[in-house]
C-alpha cells in the first residue's frame, strides 16, 4: 500500500488549504466590520472638531470624505456619523450623504445611503411614527418622524429632490438577509421634519 503516504499528503494539504482559505475569508470579512467600527472613533473626533469650529475636517489626512452630520435613532440606541459622498470609499466607514441632495441643517431633500449589513442595518427596525434625529455641522438637531418604508427598484425609481420641501430619505440595499450583494432593490425610509410649536 504505497499509496497511503500519498493520500495522507493530499489529505493534509487539502486540510491545510481549507484552514488557510477559511482563515483569510473570516479575516477579510472581519476586517470589513472592524473597519466600520474602528473608523467611528476617528470620525467622532473629526465631528467634534466640526462642532467646535463649524468647518469640515477630514478624519485622516488621506481621506476622501469627512463627517457632515450625525444621525441617531433614540429608541434603538443607534448613533452614526454621516460622511460626505455616497461612494464606496465613504460607505465602508459610515453612511454617506448624497452630494447632490440638501445638506443636513438646510431646507430641501436630504438623501443618505448606507450598507444594509453594517451601518444601516437598523433601518429594518424602524417603524412608521418612530423618531430619528439629525445633527448639522452647526450643532443643531432636527427631528424627523418616519412616514413610511418602501422597496424601490434602483433601475427605474428616482428620489425626488426639492429645494423647498424638507424631507429625509434613508436608503440601503434590500433584502436585508441576502448574503449575495449587488441586487437592484433598495429599502427606502421616508421621514418628515417634526414641526415644533413654540
Amino acid at each position: 500500500m504505497l499509496k497511503i503516504p500519498m493520500i495522507r499528503f493530499v489529505a493534509v494539504a487539502v486540510i491545510l488549504l481549507l484552514l488557510l482559505f477559511g482563515a483569510t475569508q473570516v479575516g477579510r470579512g472581519g476586517w470589513i466590520y472592524a473597519k466600520a467600527i474602528l473608523a467611528q472613533y476617528l470620525l467622532a473626533d473629526a465631528w467634534d472638531k466640526t462642532l467646535t469650529d463649524n468647518a469640515f475636517h477630514k478624519p485622516w489626512p488621506w481621506a476622501d470624505t469627512w463627517p457632515v452630520g450625525r444621525l441617531t435613532a433614540p429608541q434603538l440606541a443607534t448613533d452614526v456619523i454621516i460622511l460626505s459622498g455616497d461612494h464606496g470609499e465613504a460607505l465602508a466607514f459610515g453612511p454617506g450623504h448624497h452630494s447632490r441632495s440638501a445638506m443636513p441643517g438646510t431646507a430641501g431633500t436630504i438623501l443618505i445611503g448606507g450598507h444594509r449589513d453594517t451601518h444601516f442595518n437598523f433601518l429594518q427596525a424602524l417603524r412608521s411614527g418612530d423618531l430619528v434625529r439629525l445633527q448639522s455641522s452647526r450643532g443643531e438637531w432636527a427631528d424627523y418622524r418616519i412616514t413610511g418604508m418602501t422597496i424601490a427598484d434602483a433601475r427605474t425609481d428616482l428620489v425626488l429632490a426639492s429645494d423647498t420641501h424638507s424631507r429625509l430619505v434613508l436608503v440601503t440595499c434590500w433584502p436585508f438577509d441576502s448574503i449575495v450583494t449587488g441586487g437592484p432593490l433598495r429599502y427606502v425610509v421616508d421621514a418628515e421634519p417634526v414641526v415644533r410649536n413654540f
Binding site: Q25, V26, R28, G29, G30, I32, Y33, A36, D86, H87, G88, L91, A92, G96, H98, G113, G114, H115, R116, D117, T118, V171, T172, C173, W174, S178, I179, V180, T181, G182, G183, R186
Partner: peptide, 10 residues
C-alpha cells in the same frame, strides 16, 4: 451607494 458589503459571505 453600495447597499451591502461582502463581509457576511466571506
Amino acid at each position: 451607494p453600495r447597499g451591502a458589503t461582502p463581509a457576511q459571505l466571506q
